[in-house]
């Protein structure tokens, strides 16, 4: 176990390093520059003054080196567009994305498992087909389009739900605010969980010990819930690891449509403004978070699944 942790830790560091190298050189070697230099009416002298101030006149390698050294000490530099520490900007945006992600995981895991079980239990009946059909639709609708249609319908025409983040007074306001973003974000995760649960259930149900339990005369309900379900859910944990990066990608779109001040919108803004430090900061933080959550999922998985003993 310890060896596994150490090895995974080493791999994670290499991974994060590679991501920073790709991002840094991609941005800095491309034409253009931070948007403060890219004003239509700025003169050459103004552009030079700003480049000098932002320290953009050193060679890229040197800049990467100093960025890396600072980053290792926990200093992600200053945002090129607002002058604030990058970490501060990330910290103020992070909770919004985190809440969105947690609620989406929560919602899609619960609903996904329930639908998956219904689907498996009623295999090849209309319930199964309907759930399957719904899953495919969820995977097929462009999420931003669905989001805009939702806003048109629920916010503008029916005026049931707010179209963007509002500071609500009651809990009900807060819940209303989350409904649409979580639903939209779930279209990327829910179908996968449903399908995975379904096939996992079917596999377990056909296995010997469940048949034995049944033969012993246990009630169908007991068989499903206490024996089959527990074993079927173990692989579902592993799929959550795969879904986290996918969901974070989804937040970019959802946050943009709903004006949600989270990390996804932050990186879009930062990339457009060529705020090099901020893009680097968000990329590093998000990568670390994803790697970390995968790591945790793996450990939980190896703990609960008796079959996975010698992982790695």
């Amino acid at each position: 176990m310890l060896q596994f942790v150490i090895r995974r830790f080493g791999q994670s560091i290499v991974l994060v390093l590679i991501v920073t190298i790709i991002t840094f050189f991609l941005m800095n070697l491309a034409p253009g520059g931070p948007s403060s230099m890219m004003r239509m009416d700025a003169t050459e002298a103004e552009r030079e003054a700003i480049a000098e101030q932002l320290g953009l006149n050193d060679p890229v390698i040197v800049r990467y080196g100093s960025w890396l050294i600072n980053a290792f000490q926990g200093d992600l530099g200053l945002s090129l567009s607002s002058g604030q520490p990058v970490l501060d900007r990330i910290v103020e945006r992070f909770p919004h994305t985190f809440n969105l992600a947690i609620w989406t995981v929560f919602f899609s895991v619960i609903i996904g498992i329930v639908l998956g079980i219904i689907s498996a239990k009623n295999r090849n009946t209309w319930k199964d087909h309907l759930i399957n059909f719904g899953s495919v639709i969820g995977l097929s609708v462009p999420s931003f389009w669905l989001a805009i249609m939702f806003i048109l319908l629920f916010s503008v025409n029916l005026q049931w739900l707010p179209s963007s983040l509002v500071t609500g007074d009651s809990i009900w306001d807060t819940i209303k605010m989350y409904i649409m973003p979580v639903l939209i974000l779930s279209t990327a995760t829910l179908p996968t969980i449903v399908r995975f649960t379904r096939s996992s259930m079917l596999e377990v149900v056909s296995q010997n010990y469940v048949r034995t339990a049944r033969a012993k005369g246990l009630k169908e309900r007991t068989v499903v819930y206490s024996h089959a379900l527990r074993n079927a859910l173990i692989p579902v944990i592993s799929i959550i690891g795969v879904l986290i990066p996918r969901m974070l990608s989804g937040t970019v779109i959802v946050e943009s449509v709903f004006g949600w001040p989270g990390m996804g919108r932050l990186i879009v803004e930062a990339a457009q403004a060529r705020d090099y430090n901020l893009v680097m900061g968000v990329t590093v933080v998000v990568t670390i978070l994803v790697v970390l959550s995968n790591f945790i999922v793996d450990i939980i998985y190896s703990k609960v699944d008796p079959r996975v003993k010698n992982i790695g």
Partner: peptide, 23 residues
């Protein structure tokens, strides 16, 4: 395969976004 797993576990939409913005 380690590389493949690594690529799966990073939010590569973020990278794609940066790549398309600048390239």
């Amino acid at each position: 395969m380690r590389f493949t797993e690594a690529m799966m576990s990073i939010p590569n939409f973020f990278l794609a976004l940066v790549a398309l913005t600048v390239l």
